[in-house]
Design a binder for these strands. Structure first.
Lengths: 219, 219
DNA sequence: ACAAAAGTGTTGCTGTTACACCCATGG
DNA sequence: CCATGGGTGTAACAGCAACACTTTTGT
């Protein structure tokens, strides 16, 4: 094989979760140059003995402390000048997690959750990558309703929270009352018997998805 | 950068088209070992001066003789033993074309269109790749109705043809009469004024999509 | 008692489903 | 004139959109 056919490949893992209906991403702050002080998506170079999936899972385990999660491949990025030093191809993966279940509950100086529409200063082409992947996610979520959406809401959510998430994904407002009835009348959610703890207003009922009924449904 | 971080990367291009409602893929027969006599997806190794997209477009131009087409990225495959000699990562792309518009109208001994559910003996892991990508396409097509579906049917199709395609994508039968009315009553298609040339039965009306009306529609 | 936010009722519209029947063409 | 396959009609039903009103909580 010709020498010019050898490329450096990295995997990037976009760890996402929903925090009260708001889509968030986990990012790390770079401690060295280049892009010192900028935030980046967790990543790992790929060696010749590892598959892309294994590499992504290694990042996941390392960052969240969890053994397994919902991880799927998203897109490859291959612009020539992604890194300053040499050409690096990035293959992005997305992980969906319940942020309350991970080791990364607390934001610290160099590890933190950010709302997707309030991103900090990002290193490399990571802002582009996030935007491309989120766009992809919007499409995936509208088809694989049950596969992906449920992962964001494993249990005990209120319908207004879910509605916030929907409105973000669909990029349009939804009537609160119709939204509520859709899920309750079609038995898409099950009442857990608990209520949300709130500061003001009537507390929302906490639901979990009725997974069987959700099968094949569309957002 | 450590030596073990250098990987060989190839792009594979799945060239698809609809032939009377049947989904077909263009394949080439290998002339040398390994897998001599087996069929394969057209591909090209990636050098350090080329992006994945450029590489895929080069394959497209080379094979179809067309300058541009609808090409999008699909999935990466990184199993360690994909190739016998050395580890090669494949990034697949999908091209949608009207098979009557390309140089590859005629099937020859070593270049041919195959129906997706009647694939020949395939080399490497290319059968797996086709299956994975087609599965992906099913999802994409149900969301990006207008972006992708229309590319398969640029003009002058009959509704029964379109229905065949739908039934293949959705993997279920559809009532012929309801299907017809859906498209005509909602003005999703425009009568071209021509009729299909047929051997038996009443000739179908030839339609083309009403692209404006299709915007945002779901399959 | 009041503000804030969750939950319920009604009505019309749109699109889908499940049917039976009629029309245009080639042999 | 018959086989083949495309095109039209109709009625019931489900889900969605657009509305106003009631209930439960904290202060």
């Amino acid at each position: 094989m010709k020498n010019s056919y050898y490329n450096v490949v990295e995997t990037l893992l976009l760890i996402l979760s929903s925090d009260e209906g708001k889509l968030k991403i986990y990012l790390e702050k770079k401690k060295e140059e280049p892009y010192k002080g900028y935030w980046t998506i967790p990543g790992k170079f790929l060696d010749r003995e590892t598959t892309l999936e294994e590499n992504a899972e290694a990042i996941y385990k390392n960052t969240t402390g969890l053994d397994e999660g919902t991880i799927f491949q998203t897109q490859a990025f291959s612009n020539l000048n992604r890194h300053n030093s040499e050409r690096v191809i990035a293959i992005s993966f997305t992980a969906i997690t319940d942020k309350t279940l991970t080791d990364i509950k607390q934001n610290t100086n160099d590890k933190s959750w950010f709302q997707i529409d309030e991103l900090p200063k990002l290193g490399f082409d990571h802002e582009q990558i996030i935007n491309a992947v989120i766009n992809d996610l919007r499409n995936k979520i509208t088809t694989n309703y049950d596969d992906i959406l449920i992962k964001f809401f494993p249990s005990d959510f209120t319908l207004p929270e879910l509605q916030n998430f929907y409105e973000y994904v669909l990029e349009k407002p939804i009537d609160r009352r119709n939204f509520h009835k859709k899920f309750v009348n079609q038995d898409l959610v099950v009442d857990t018997g608990f209520k949300q703890a709130k500061s003001s207003g009537r507390p929302g009922t906490l639901y979990r998805f009725n997974i069987d009924k959700m099968k094949g449904k569309r957002i």
